[in-house]
């Protein structure tokens, strides 16, 4: 009899008082949010904290960059910068932007579907009135949206902070991962790729923890190490050649050194250390016929294009992995 009397007391919520939030999300979106809200919120809050921190640091750095020392030479500014706390602030910022793709893959991607496979709740959700395709779409879209928001925000703020100091941070070598992969479109592409890899690992091993480990290993070794050797491969560096008497050509303003060579009269390339340790370098060079020194470098104006091309490559891989994974999930037997 009590059952009939208590109709409409849905908000008797015994545990936490007064929890009847307005019904903002509906349908599958509500379920996905409810199921993954801890991970989503954690990502968004950490991003917000990171953004706030970077904005604060940027304000501090700007004063330094505007007025390092009246009348100081560029070399001195670099020295001042390297010894200041600003340098380590940039390193921390870059570290944060580097961590984001890893975190997205491990904490958002890997459990996204593996959790449902492991607990069997995929059977529960896909036997309600909505199709598996719909469930998959909403779920992946939500995770991708959170990833996009976080990575775009962090990358935009870090890039904005880094740009005025681009010739100082990492001593101006922007072709290193610590600069190249943390600015512009690169963090977004990396985060999306890690997300796709996390989801794929989860679908493959069907268990959350092993999937997380696999995703971390991928992010760490493939995107951390292997990518280091791939990043600059699609691009042609610019070349400056000097007569040998003038020594090595200096790297132009804002450029990043790629390689140094010594050149003989026939245009043959030799290692830049050729004759370097000889007692009589000049004689040695004459013997080898070396007449010039050559510098391969990337100009700062190339950076934007290079980043977009690399981001495009990563995104193509992302789409491939995601397409295969989602196609398989749609068809597989549960």
């Amino acid at each position: 009899m009590s059952a009939t009397v208590t109709t409409g007391t849905g908000n008797e919520a015994t545990g936490e008082g007064g929890k009847q939030p307005p019904r903002v999300l509906r349908g599958m979106a509500w379920l996905v949010w409810r199921q993954h809200r801890v991970a989503f919120l954690a990502c968004l809050l950490l991003t917000a904290a990171g953004v706030a921190n970077m904005l604060w640091e940027r304000a501090a750095t700007r004063d330094f960059l505007k007025n390092p020392r009246p009348g100081a030479l560029a070399v001195d500014v670099a020295g001042l910068f390297a010894n200041s706390s600003y340098d380590s602030a940039y390193q921390d910022g870059a570290w944060l932007v580097t961590c984001l793709p890893l975190a997205v893959g491990v904490f958002l991607g890997a459990p996204l579907i593996a959790g449902d496979l492991e607990r069997g709740t995929l059977k529960l959700v896909t036997t309600q009135s909505m199709t598996r395709r719909h469930w998959l779409t909403v779920k992946v879209a939500a995770a991708a949206l959170v990833t996009l928001v976080c990575s775009v925000a962090l990358s935009a703020v870090y890039t904005w902070w880094w740009r005025p100091a681009h010739d100082l941070v990492n001593t101006g070598r922007w072709t290193d991962g610590v600069v190249f992969d943390t600015t512009g479109p690169m963090p977004v592409a990396m985060a999306l790729l890690n997300l796709a890899v996390g989801i794929a690992a989860g679908v493959l091993v069907r268990r959350v923890l092993p999937a997380m480990a696999l995703t971390f290993a991928f992010g760490f070794f493939v995107l951390g190490w292997l990518w280091d050797g791939v990043r600059l491969l699609p691009f042609t560096p610019r070349v400056i050649t000097n007569p040998v008497e003038q020594g090595q050509p200096p790297v132009p303003e804002g450029g990043a050194r790629f390689d140094n060579w010594t050149v003989d009269a026939h245009g043959g390339l030799h290692g830049f250390g050729t004759c370097f340790n000889e007692h009589t370098p000049a004689d040695c060079r004459t013997n080898q016929g070396i007449v010039a020194e050559r510098l391969d470098y990337f100009g700062f104006d190339q950076m934007n294009t290079m980043q977009w091309v690399d981001a495009g490559i990563l995104l193509a891989v992302t789409v491939l992995i995601a397409g295969l994974t989602l196609g398989w999930v749609r068809k597989r037997s549960l």
Partner: peptide
Amino acid sequence: LARCAYLAQDKPLFP
């Protein structure tokens, strides 16, 4: 989908 309901053996629910 809307016309039939299914209950798996282990009765999966979100814990």
